[in-house]
């Protein structure tokens, strides 16, 4: 990891990956998006068998190979070198996306630019007219996987909330996110609201609400505060 100045409190990226991994049940078939979700693979608790799918055509993706043993024809959806576990299988793209679109993937973990309180996800385009848009498999995954977990920093690099009442960036899918893991907290997206599941140890509720662009619901309590203004 980098040793760059880290003024942020809350969970680290590895902490977030560990939290997600802890919530993946034994026997699950899981697809991990590019970026922060990729590190979930390193944190599956001992004794739990989780099979990772990568949409370019591998079920049973293993960790990165040792230096010098990379195979350019054995990569993941992020085009990084990976390995295949004992019992892995290879298949073509239409079969791979049938696994996704046919509802066979139990959990997909994706990054986000914005998530709304309705579970709408924006993670593929910033809407710039002259930049080539790129979508990859994100729209297939959100439409087809049984559950969508989002792993993200709570705020953008410029400090704006990523959890909002309504997304303003182009949608990847509507009402698709069921759980959000950030450096500040974990939420269920339920009944059109962000329900707090767990707060990072050094974050207080006011800080959380101030950095969230939608009202936070605490199950069993009234809302923690009114939505921070965007």
């Amino acid at each position: 990891m980098t040793t760059a100045t880290n003024t942020a409190m809350g969970w680290s990226r590895q902490d977030i990956a560990r939290k997600i991994a802890a919530d993946i049940p034994d026997g699950a078939f899981v697809n991990l998006g590019i970026g922060m979700p990729e590190s979930v693979v390193n944190h599956i608790p001992d004794g739990r068998e989780v099979i990772f799918h990568t949409e370019n055509g591998l079920l049973g993706m293993g960790p990165a190979p040792p230096a010098g043993e990379e195979d350019p024809e054995l990569i993941n959806a992020g085009k990084r070198h990976v390995t295949a576990i004992t019992g892995a299988s290879f298949f073509h793209h239409a079969d791979s996306f049938a696994m996704i679109r046919g509802g066979h993937i139990d959990i997909c973990v994706l990054g986000a630019m914005q998530v709304s309180q309705a579970g709408d996800l924006a993670n593929w385009s910033i809407g710039e007219a002259d930049a080539a848009p790129a979508v990859g498999g994100a729209m297939d995954l959100v439409a087809g996987a049984k559950q969508i977990f989002v792993a993200t920093q709570h705020c953008t690099k410029s400090g704006k909330p990523k959890l909002v009442e309504s997304i303003t960036l182009p949608a990847t899918g509507l009402a698709v996110v069921s759980r959000v893991y950030t450096d500040m907290a974990i939420f269920d997206v339920r009944n059109g609201a962000f329900e707090l599941v767990e707060l990072a140890p050094d974050i207080d509720l006011q800080t959380l609400q101030d950095n969230t662009g939608a009202a936070i619901i605490i199950p069993g309590h009234a809302e923690a505060g009114k939505a921070a203004s965007l």
């Binding site: 996306f97 979508v135 087809g144």
Partner: peptide
């Protein structure tokens, strides 16, 4: 490609990956 696209020199039909395969 990104350079040609930004200068309007090439056409793009963007298709979700699974839809493309299907």
């Amino acid at each position: 490609f990104p350079d040609l696209y930004s200068r309007n020199k090439i056409e793009l039909e963007l298709v979700p990956q699974g839809t493309l395969a299907e």
